[in-house]
Simulated scan of single mutants.
Amino acid sequence: MKNKSIFKVLACLAIMSFNSVAFTDTAEIINDCMDCHGNNGISTEPDMPTIAGASATFIESALFAYKDNVRPAQQSKYRFGDISKAPTDMKKIVDQLSAQQISDIATFFAQKPFKAAKQGFNQALVSDGKKVHEIKCQRCHNSGGSDPDDDSGILAGQHSLYLENSMKDYQDGSREMDKKMQQKIDQLNSDEWQALLAYYASQQ
């Protein structure tokens, strides 16, 4: 009986230790995310998206897209924290994550408030960009691209350079998209795209 009691105590301690390690690992991963995406996921780097405030569904989908090789993972150096760490990419990072960790990370950043990037834009193009958005983008990107609940990502106030790079990935086929989005993007000319960038950047 005594041996059974000792076994139960040891088993409980093992479970507590495992849970503690799992939590620490997830916390470390979140801190690692912030070393590129900024404090609480608010990016100050023009080529790095702000992930704070996006829906958990959107963030999870993005992480699994890297994991499944349907989204290109560009190598990047660390911007904050220990910047002496070797450059990495999203594919290398997500390949180390469990489904539960991905869910926890998505939930953490989804609960943080989005903050629009302070950036320059062409004021003369904003009105045209709004019209293009309402005709070609509004159906999936609600409220001028600012509604996280549509699970399509936040465009309004996102860094223009990041959006430009994303568009290039869509256009060259290296980033997967659904057929409806493909049709809309194929219809955009360069002037319309520049107008869209101005419109999204103007929402500060």
Rank of each mutant, 00 (worst) to 15 (best):
K2Y: 14
K4C: 02
S5N: 14
F7P: 00
C12E: 12
A22H: 10
F23M: 13
A27Q: 14
D32I: 13
C36E: 08
H37Q: 06
G38C: 05
S43Q: 03
T44W: 03
T44K: 11
A56T: 09
F58C: 04
I59R: 00
S61V: 10
D68R: 10
R79S: 13
S84P: 01
P87R: 15
M90D: 03
K91L: 07
K91R: 07
K91P: 00
I93P: 04
L97P: 01
L97G: 02
Q100M: 09
F108W: 14
A110T: 01
P113N: 07
K115R: 11
A117N: 04
Q123E: 09
V126T: 08
D128W: 06
H133P: 04
H133W: 12
K136S: 07
K136C: 00
G144M: 00
P148I: 05
D151V: 06
Q158P: 12
Q158H: 10
Y162G: 09
L163W: 02
M167R: 05
K168F: 13
K168D: 13
D178Q: 12
M181N: 10
D186M: 09
Q187K: 14
L188M: 11
L188V: 03
E192M: 02
A195L: 01
A195C: 01
Y200L: 07
Y200T: 04
S202V: 02
Q203W: 00
